[in-house]
Design a protein around this nucleic acid. Structure first.
Lengths: 162, 162
DNA sequence: GTCCCTATACTCGGATAGCAAGTGTCCGAGTATAGGCGG
DNA sequence: CCGCCTATACTCGGACACTTGCTATCCGAGTATAGGGAC
């Protein structure tokens, strides 16, 4: 069980886009440059964020990406599911209904207890991610980031934004 | 993010081994037959459970597997980590320290806020799995399983146990 | 009849192929801009 | 001088290779048993 590297990139990109002035956009190449990651591969993940409706894309020169809604209305879970997909991590194959002692399917009205346990844990995981918004993360960055990085970041963003 | 199929098999195997009379063993091939899964592949996962110290293996004829400790002392998390490994699902690559505005490493005393959020969610997931023991699952099966399957299962186990 | 030895059959354990999904990259479709041209 | 047109350059979006890890399988090392033979 491993979470894709793209999730980390996607969250960081959203936090940076949250710091963008309204009605401005930031191209994919600039986002990659800011984070020091491969531009082509980051573009792939940004497409996923766009498909999920978390960011808007503007084509052409002076185009780029911006958040589709307020940073306070985008949860970390939104980003994770946009990148990783929203299918459950645990898939029950109903092996209790296989093998020599299996009964007819209608004898198993409730879901398998193993699956219920795994899904309950997954729900707890999702709840924790849903409780945290991109806005919360931005606040944390402003709170904790090195002051020099903050000023440099703001200046960098001012020049890179379109 | 996808949980290996072996996790499901491992948990079901532990619940079946919990129903085994004390000091009896069940061979890998019988476990596979009971659950209707490929024997050779299940054997691989049982090795992982053995390495993790959750089950004991007895070699030779009349050999097989049995739980290494009480079913009440084996949590679902134990089984999941035995199969999937105990490394965190989210790995922080510290991309905040990359790119043009990165500062010296000593300027980042705390862990990245993104990583803290992801790890907190993972901790909630683990806590949910740690709260559930194999014994709890067995109780659930006895409670909910079709009566015919229960009696057939006990009889099957009586003949298959060594 | 009893004890010992040997061959057997059955178990686990690790080493070995095959395949799907994540990782990484590229090029084409579309658009706002900038410059040139005509009025 | 002003407006329009065209070529350009830059953006996103989807299609195409490569690598890692999960899926699946097999064979070898080790051991308790069962049978046969010797005493």
């Amino acid at each position: 069980m491993r979470i894709s590297e793209g999730v980390e990139w996607g969250i960081h990109c959203c936090t940076l886009l949250a710091a963008l002035p309204p009605d401005r956009t930031l191209p994919s190449a600039r986002l990659a440059e800011y984070h020091g990651v491969p531009p082509a591969y980051l573009a792939k993940h940004l497409q996923a964020l766009s498909r999920a409706g978390l960011v808007e894309s503007v084509p052409g020169p002076r185009g780029g990406y911006r958040l589709a809604r307020s940073a306070a209305q985008i949860t970390v879970l939104d980003v994770v599911e946009a990148i990783e997909g929203n299918e459950p991590a645990f898939e029950c194959t109903e092996i209790r209904q296989r093998g020599p002692i299996a009964q007819a399917p209608e004898c198993y009205p409730r879901k398998c207890g193993v699956a219920r346990t795994m899904w309950a844990a997954e729900a707890a995981w999702q709840a924790a991610l849903r409780a945290q918004t991109i806005d919360d993360l931005v606040a944390g960055v402003i709170e904790e980031a090195p002051p020099a990085a903050l000023t440099a970041g703001v200046e960098w963003l001012r020049q890179a934004a379109r």
